Amino acid sequence: HFTSQQLQELEATFQRNRYPDMSTREEIAVWTNLTEARVRVWFKNRRAKWR
């Protein structure tokens, strides 16, 4: 589960860029205190939901 702060950060990034690269995902991981893998999976799932 994600905190509302984490989701806000993830959503804001998603609005700007639906396909963040590795370095962007790592930055998000640092800001949100999540692993890069969790961030990558979140984006994958979010893109699926967005379609």
Rank of each mutant, 00 (worst) to 15 (best):
D21G: 07
A12P: 02
N33R: 07
Q15G: 07
A37R: 11
R25F: 07
R16P: 03
A48Q: 09
Q5E: 13
T24E: 13
R18E: 05
V30Q: 13
N45M: 14
A12H: 09
Q15L: 12
A12F: 09
R38G: 09
K44D: 06
K44M: 10
R46T: 05
L7E: 11
I28L: 13
E36L: 05
S4T: 12
N45L: 13
E26Y: 11
Q5K: 11
E11G: 01
E26Q: 14
R46Q: 06
M22F: 13
T32Q: 06
F2N: 03
A48I: 11
W50R: 05
Q15P: 05
E27R: 13
A12S: 11
V39C: 00
W31I: 15
Y19M: 04
A12W: 11
Q6P: 02
W31P: 01
A48D: 10
I28F: 01
R46P: 01
A37I: 12
S4Q: 13
Q15R: 10
R46D: 04
E36H: 03
V41A: 15
K44L: 08
V30H: 11
Q6A: 07
R16W: 10
R47I: 06
R18V: 05
R38L: 15
A37Y: 12
F43N: 00
N45K: 14
R38T: 12
N17S: 06
Q6M: 06
Y19F: 12
T35N: 06
V30G: 10
E36I: 04
T13C: 12
V39A: 02
Q15C: 09
R40N: 09
Q5D: 09
R40M: 05
K49D: 08
E11T: 03
N45W: 15
A48N: 08
T24D: 08
L10T: 00
R47W: 04
A12R: 13
S23H: 13
P20E: 03
K49P: 05
S4L: 12
E27L: 15
E26N: 12
A29M: 03
E27V: 10
N17R: 03
E11N: 04
F2H: 03
T32I: 13
F14T: 02
A29V: 01
L7Y: 07
K49F: 10
F2E: 03
Q6W: 05
D21A: 06
A29Q: 02
Q8Y: 11
A48H: 09
R51P: 08
R40K: 08
R51D: 09
T32M: 13
K44W: 09
V39R: 00
F43H: 00
D21M: 05
K49S: 10
I28V: 08
T24K: 07
R47S: 02
W42E: 00
R18N: 06
P20V: 02
